[in-house]
Simulated scan of single mutants.
Amino acid sequence: MTQTVREDEVTSEDELFDQSEVAADYLEGLLDVLDSDGDIDELVVGDRPQVEIVGDGLEKLVGQKGQTLEALQELARLAVYRKIGEHSRLMLDIGGYRANRRKKLAELAKKTAAKVIEQDRVVKLDPMGAFERKCVHDVINATDGVESESEGAEPHRRVVVKPA
């Protein structure tokens, strides 16, 4: 599903916070059904609503390679859409998974950039989800001497890092 946002459709911080509250309410109900404990924090980070679930024993909500987390994020976005009538760019993190993954991906991107610069050759990374690709692109774009692009189709889409 793609969403087109016009520049004149700026969402206020209050509207973004409302989105995170709707998502948090939905996820709280889901945690009750699953009989899982976790504290839910509602935030606005940059121009995105965010919900963080923190606590112990949340691994089952993250799943293998974050697949369950991604599914829960989409369900939370759908809950926001049903309640507010607008598509949301809500970001969900559970047990700090995304924050930890972002750090690891930043390290990978830095090592890859150094390799590309040192060897003056293109490096293709393993396929990644959209969140992971964005983390890598952000680091590469902030590094002199290299550039990146995504190639392929989901679920085999990957980041390609090239000399600039």
Rank of each mutant, 00 (worst) to 15 (best):
Q3L: 14
Q3M: 13
T4K: 15
E15N: 11
E15K: 12
V22M: 04
G29N: 10
L31E: 00
L31N: 03
D32Y: 07
V33M: 13
V33W: 04
G38V: 04
D39W: 01
I40E: 02
D41E: 12
V44S: 04
D47L: 10
P49N: 04
E52H: 09
I53R: 03
V54C: 08
G55H: 01
G55Q: 02
G63N: 00
K65D: 08
L69P: 01
A71E: 01
L72E: 00
L75A: 06
L75G: 01
L75E: 00
A76I: 04
R77N: 04
L78C: 00
V80C: 03
R89E: 10
D93C: 07
G96I: 04
Y97K: 06
Y97F: 12
R98W: 02
E107R: 14
T112Q: 05
V116I: 11
D120L: 10
R121N: 11
V123G: 05
K124N: 13
F131V: 13
E132C: 09
D138C: 06
I140L: 14
D144H: 09
G145K: 10
V146P: 03
E149G: 11
S150I: 07
E151G: 09
E151D: 10
A153D: 13
P155A: 09
H156W: 12
R158H: 14
V161C: 07
V161S: 09
P163V: 14
